[in-house]
């Protein structure tokens, strides 16, 4: 698809920002998202090309306004719901429960 992910040759996608001595992860949630990739892939529910396409389908503004590991999280949620492994309603309910417990 001719999506925003196909960046090659575009102008205006912001300044190049290079962080010195950058850590591997910036937040604990990034660690968890990264660590989930292989175990979820090992479930055999989707392949890497479907995973990439799920990121491409997230839409231009969402793609540009979220970070790399948020892209991964979006793809996990999208594909696991589409494939029937999880229900959107149970994800939403669990989010609401966690928000209440930790607010």
């Amino acid at each position: 698809m001719n999506g925003i992910h196909d960046t090659g040759g575009m102008h205006g996608l912001g300044p190049l920002v290079v962080e010195q001595d950058e850590p591997v992860f910036h937040h604990e949630w990034e660690r968890r998202v990264f660590g989930l990739f292989l175990p979820i892939a090992a479930m055999g529910t989707f392949n890497l090309d479907e995973f990439r396409h799920a990121i491409e389908r997230m839409g231009a503004s969402g793609y540009l306004n979220t970070s790399y590991y948020e892209h991964w999280l979006h793809a996990f949620e999208t594909l696991l719901v589409e494939k029937g492994v999880l229900q959107q309603t149970e994800l939403a309910a669990r989010c609401a429960q966690i928000a209440q417990e930790t607010h």
């Binding site: 196909d6 090659g8 040759g9 090309d49 479907e50 396409h53």
Partner: peptide, 11 residues
């Protein structure tokens, strides 16, 4: 210009 996933960049 496929609407699905492809790895051929536009450029």
């Amino acid at each position: 210009n496929p609407v699905g996933h492809t790895r051929v960049p536009r450029y």
